[in-house]
Computed example of a mutant assay.
Amino acid sequence: MQPTHAEVARTLAAGHLPAVAHIACRPGPLPVRHVIDAQGRVLLLSPAGGAVAAGLRSQPGTGDTAMVLDITDVPPVAGSPALGRVWVSGWVTRLDGDEARRAALDYAEIDASGDLLDVGESKVLHRLDVAEVRYERNDKLVEIDPDDFAAATPDPLRQIEFDLIADLAEHHLAEMSAYVRRQLGPAVQPASEPRVVRMDRYGFLVRLDDKLARLAFPRPVTDRQDLAHLLHPVLCHRCTS
Protein backbone atom coordinates (compact mmCIF):
# COMPACT_ATOMS: atom_id res chain seq x y z
CA MET A 1 0.00 0.00 0.00
CA GLN A 2 1.09 3.55 -0.76
CA PRO A 3 -0.39 7.00 -0.16
CA THR A 4 -2.77 8.22 -2.85
CA HIS A 5 -1.98 11.43 -4.71
CA ALA A 6 -4.74 13.15 -2.73
CA GLU A 7 -3.22 11.98 0.58
CA VAL A 8 0.26 13.18 -0.36
CA ALA A 9 -1.08 16.55 -1.53
CA ARG A 10 -3.13 16.90 1.66
CA THR A 11 -0.07 16.04 3.76
CA LEU A 12 2.11 18.59 1.99
CA ALA A 13 -0.54 21.29 2.27
CA ALA A 14 -1.54 20.54 5.88
CA GLY A 15 0.23 23.62 7.23
CA HIS A 16 3.56 22.35 8.55
CA LEU A 17 5.67 23.27 5.52
CA PRO A 18 6.60 26.74 4.23
CA ALA A 19 4.15 28.11 1.66
CA VAL A 20 4.00 31.08 -0.69
CA ALA A 21 0.97 32.83 -2.14
CA HIS A 22 0.66 33.85 -5.78
CA ILE A 23 -2.09 36.50 -5.76
CA ALA A 24 -3.75 37.48 -9.03
CA CYS A 25 -2.56 40.84 -10.42
CA ARG A 26 -0.23 41.38 -7.45
CA PRO A 27 3.57 41.19 -7.15
CA GLY A 28 4.87 38.08 -5.47
CA PRO A 29 5.17 35.33 -4.49
CA LEU A 30 4.59 36.17 -0.82
CA PRO A 31 5.35 33.90 2.18
CA VAL A 32 2.13 33.03 4.00
CA ARG A 33 1.12 31.01 7.06
CA HIS A 34 -1.72 28.58 6.54
CA VAL A 35 -3.42 25.42 7.71
CA ILE A 36 -6.05 23.12 6.29
CA ASP A 37 -8.67 22.45 8.93
CA ALA A 38 -10.43 19.17 9.67
CA GLN A 39 -13.07 19.93 7.01
CA GLY A 40 -10.43 20.47 4.33
CA ARG A 41 -10.78 24.26 4.25
CA VAL A 42 -7.66 26.39 3.67
CA LEU A 43 -7.17 29.14 6.26
CA LEU A 44 -4.56 31.89 5.86
CA LEU A 45 -3.16 33.87 8.82
CA SER A 46 -1.31 37.13 8.17
CA PRO A 47 -0.63 40.59 9.66
CA ALA A 48 -3.56 42.91 9.08
CA GLY A 49 -1.27 45.58 7.65
CA GLY A 50 1.04 43.20 5.78
CA ALA A 51 1.64 42.50 2.10
CA VAL A 52 -0.54 39.37 2.03
CA ALA A 53 -3.59 41.12 3.51
CA ALA A 54 -3.06 44.08 1.19
CA GLY A 55 -2.73 41.81 -1.83
CA LEU A 56 -5.89 39.91 -0.91
CA ARG A 57 -7.93 43.08 -0.49
CA SER A 58 -10.39 42.90 -3.37
CA GLN A 59 -11.00 45.97 -5.45
CA PRO A 60 -14.52 47.46 -5.43
CA GLY A 61 -16.78 45.52 -7.77
CA THR A 62 -14.28 42.73 -8.39
CA GLY A 63 -15.54 40.19 -5.79
CA ASP A 64 -13.21 37.57 -4.35
CA THR A 65 -9.49 37.52 -5.13
CA ALA A 66 -7.92 34.60 -7.00
CA MET A 67 -4.87 33.02 -5.39
CA VAL A 68 -2.57 29.99 -5.70
CA LEU A 69 -1.04 28.48 -2.57
CA ASP A 70 2.31 26.91 -3.46
CA ILE A 71 3.93 24.33 -1.13
CA THR A 72 7.11 22.32 -1.77
CA ASP A 73 8.18 19.35 0.34
CA VAL A 74 11.25 19.61 2.57
CA PRO A 75 12.88 16.14 2.94
CA PRO A 76 13.46 15.18 6.59
CA VAL A 77 17.09 14.02 6.29
CA ALA A 78 19.95 14.02 3.81
CA GLY A 79 19.36 11.39 1.15
CA SER A 80 15.58 11.47 1.53
CA PRO A 81 13.67 11.90 -1.74
CA ALA A 82 11.29 14.85 -1.86
CA LEU A 83 7.57 14.13 -2.04
CA GLY A 84 7.07 16.88 -4.60
CA ARG A 85 5.07 20.06 -4.80
CA VAL A 86 1.40 21.00 -4.58
CA TRP A 87 -0.53 24.01 -5.86
CA VAL A 88 -3.93 24.80 -4.34
CA SER A 89 -5.90 27.36 -6.35
CA GLY A 90 -9.12 29.19 -5.64
CA TRP A 91 -10.75 32.38 -4.44
CA VAL A 92 -10.00 34.08 -1.15
CA THR A 93 -12.46 35.67 1.27
CA ARG A 94 -11.57 37.72 4.33
CA LEU A 95 -13.19 36.45 7.54
CA ASP A 96 -14.56 38.85 10.13
CA GLY A 97 -16.60 38.77 13.32
CA ASP A 98 -18.03 35.44 14.46
CA GLU A 99 -16.83 33.73 11.30
CA ALA A 100 -13.25 34.79 12.02
CA ARG A 101 -13.52 33.63 15.65
CA ARG A 102 -14.79 30.20 14.58
CA ALA A 103 -12.04 29.95 11.96
CA ALA A 104 -9.43 30.86 14.60
CA LEU A 105 -10.58 27.91 16.71
CA ASP A 106 -10.36 25.62 13.68
CA TYR A 107 -6.88 26.98 12.90
CA ALA A 108 -5.78 26.37 16.51
CA GLU A 109 -6.65 22.67 16.24
CA ILE A 110 -3.86 22.37 13.66
CA ASP A 111 -1.49 25.11 14.84
CA ALA A 112 -2.16 26.67 18.24
CA SER A 113 -0.29 29.88 17.46
CA GLY A 114 -0.50 32.71 19.95
CA ASP A 115 -1.02 35.08 17.01
CA LEU A 116 -4.59 33.77 16.75
CA LEU A 117 -5.42 35.81 19.87
CA ASP A 118 -4.84 38.94 17.78
CA VAL A 119 -7.22 38.00 14.94
CA GLY A 120 -9.51 40.96 14.37
CA GLU A 121 -6.84 43.39 15.54
CA SER A 122 -3.24 43.04 14.33
CA LYS A 123 -3.89 39.72 12.55
CA VAL A 124 -6.41 38.70 9.92
CA LEU A 125 -7.74 35.36 8.68
CA HIS A 126 -8.73 34.56 5.11
CA ARG A 127 -10.35 31.43 3.69
CA LEU A 128 -9.34 29.96 0.34
CA ASP A 129 -12.26 28.24 -1.39
CA VAL A 130 -10.48 25.50 -3.34
CA ALA A 131 -11.23 25.22 -7.04
CA GLU A 132 -8.19 23.28 -8.28
CA VAL A 133 -5.41 21.12 -6.82
CA ARG A 134 -2.32 20.10 -8.78
CA TYR A 135 0.40 17.78 -7.50
CA GLU A 136 3.80 17.44 -9.16
CA ARG A 137 6.55 14.93 -8.53
CA ASN A 138 9.44 13.86 -10.73
CA ASP A 139 8.16 16.06 -13.58
CA LYS A 140 4.74 14.34 -13.53
CA LEU A 141 1.76 16.62 -12.95
CA VAL A 142 -1.48 15.19 -11.54
CA GLU A 143 -4.84 16.96 -11.25
CA ILE A 144 -6.60 16.09 -7.97
CA ASP A 145 -10.32 16.47 -7.46
CA PRO A 146 -10.91 19.15 -4.78
CA ASP A 147 -13.43 16.89 -3.02
CA ASP A 148 -10.86 14.06 -2.85
CA PHE A 149 -8.30 16.54 -1.53
CA ALA A 150 -10.67 17.78 1.19
CA ALA A 151 -11.66 14.23 2.18
CA ALA A 152 -8.07 12.94 2.40
CA THR A 153 -6.33 12.96 5.79
CA PRO A 154 -2.75 14.18 6.23
CA ASP A 155 -0.20 11.57 7.20
CA PRO A 156 -0.03 11.26 11.01
CA LEU A 157 3.75 10.67 10.95
CA ARG A 158 4.77 13.65 8.80
CA GLN A 159 5.42 16.07 11.65
CA ILE A 160 7.55 13.55 13.56
CA GLU A 161 9.16 11.88 10.55
CA PHE A 162 12.60 13.39 11.24
CA ASP A 163 12.51 12.26 14.89
CA LEU A 164 11.46 8.74 13.92
CA ILE A 165 14.16 8.35 11.28
CA ALA A 166 16.83 9.82 13.57
CA ASP A 167 15.81 7.47 16.40
CA LEU A 168 16.06 4.42 14.13
CA ALA A 169 19.48 5.54 12.84
CA GLU A 170 20.87 6.27 16.31
CA HIS A 171 19.40 3.43 18.37
CA HIS A 172 18.13 0.67 16.07
CA LEU A 173 20.40 0.67 13.02
CA ALA A 174 21.50 -2.97 13.41
CA GLU A 175 17.95 -4.26 14.01
CA MET A 176 16.51 -2.32 11.05
CA SER A 177 19.36 -3.39 8.80
CA ALA A 178 18.82 -7.05 9.69
CA TYR A 179 15.07 -6.72 9.16
CA VAL A 180 15.50 -5.08 5.74
CA ARG A 181 17.98 -7.72 4.63
CA ARG A 182 15.57 -10.48 5.70
CA GLN A 183 12.76 -8.83 3.78
CA LEU A 184 14.84 -8.38 0.63
CA GLY A 185 16.08 -11.95 0.60
CA PRO A 186 19.45 -13.28 -0.57
CA ALA A 187 19.08 -12.00 -4.13
CA VAL A 188 19.25 -8.35 -3.06
CA GLN A 189 21.89 -7.60 -0.45
CA PRO A 190 23.33 -4.04 -0.46
CA ALA A 191 27.02 -3.47 0.26
CA SER A 192 26.33 -0.71 2.79
CA GLU A 193 23.90 -0.70 5.70
CA PRO A 194 20.32 -0.05 4.57
CA ARG A 195 19.03 3.31 5.86
CA VAL A 196 15.44 4.39 6.41
CA VAL A 197 15.05 7.74 4.62
CA ARG A 198 11.25 8.28 4.64
CA MET A 199 8.27 7.06 6.65
CA ASP A 200 4.52 7.36 6.31
CA ARG A 201 1.42 5.60 7.61
CA TYR A 202 1.78 2.82 5.02
CA GLY A 203 5.46 1.92 5.38
CA PHE A 204 8.99 3.21 4.97
CA LEU A 205 11.48 3.91 2.21
CA VAL A 206 14.97 2.45 2.54
CA ARG A 207 18.11 3.53 0.73
CA LEU A 208 20.16 0.57 -0.55
CA ASP A 209 23.45 1.89 -1.90
CA ASP A 210 22.23 3.96 -4.89
CA LYS A 211 18.71 2.47 -4.97
CA LEU A 212 15.50 2.89 -3.00
CA ALA A 213 13.15 0.15 -1.79
CA ARG A 214 9.74 0.52 -0.18
CA LEU A 215 8.67 -1.82 2.62
CA ALA A 216 5.02 -1.81 3.66
CA PHE A 217 3.53 -2.12 7.13
CA PRO A 218 0.94 -4.90 7.63
CA ARG A 219 -1.65 -2.12 7.99
CA PRO A 220 -1.67 1.69 8.06
CA VAL A 221 -0.55 3.16 11.38
CA THR A 222 -2.56 5.82 13.20
CA ASP A 223 0.04 7.57 15.38
CA ARG A 224 3.47 7.27 17.01
CA GLN A 225 2.28 4.83 19.68
CA ASP A 226 0.68 2.61 17.06
CA LEU A 227 3.91 2.69 15.05
CA ALA A 228 5.96 1.66 18.10
CA HIS A 229 3.61 -1.27 18.67
CA LEU A 230 3.89 -2.32 15.03
CA LEU A 231 7.70 -2.03 14.95
CA HIS A 232 8.29 -3.83 18.24
CA PRO A 233 8.72 -7.29 16.59
CA VAL A 234 11.14 -5.69 14.08
CA LEU A 235 13.29 -3.93 16.67
CA CYS A 236 13.14 -6.90 19.07
CA HIS A 237 13.49 -9.80 16.60
CA ARG A 238 14.66 -12.16 19.34
CA CYS A 239 11.30 -11.68 21.08
CA THR A 240 9.52 -13.38 18.19
CA SER A 241 12.12 -16.00 17.40
Results as ranks from 00 to 15, higher is better:
G61D: 05
V74N: 05
P75S: 06
S192I: 04
L117S: 06
P3Q: 13
M1V: 09
D155R: 03
L168Q: 09
P29V: 02
C239S: 14
S122Y: 07
L69K: 00
V92N: 00
P3N: 13
A66N: 08
P81G: 02
A51R: 08
G40P: 00
D155W: 01
R57W: 15
S192G: 12
K211E: 15
L227I: 10
V196I: 15
A51L: 11
D98P: 06
L117D: 09
E143D: 14
L105K: 09
E193K: 10
G185A: 13
V130T: 14
L227E: 06
V124Q: 06
G61N: 09
L12A: 02
A6C: 07
S58D: 11
L227Q: 04
H34I: 05
I110S: 12
R127H: 05
L125Y: 08
L168K: 01
T4Y: 08
P29C: 01
D200P: 01
L208W: 13
G97D: 11
G120K: 03
A53G: 04
A78V: 08
F149L: 08
Q189S: 03
V68N: 07
S58F: 10
V119N: 02
S241C: 08
Q189G: 03
A24V: 04
A228K: 02
A112V: 06
E193Y: 12
L83S: 07
A14T: 02
T62K: 13
V77R: 03
A54E: 15
R201N: 06
R94P: 05
T11H: 01
L205V: 11
P76M: 11
A187V: 10
E193P: 02
L231R: 01
A6T: 05
Q2M: 10
L12S: 04
H232Q: 14
H34V: 05
P220H: 08
I36K: 00
M176E: 01
V74D: 07
E121M: 09
L95H: 04
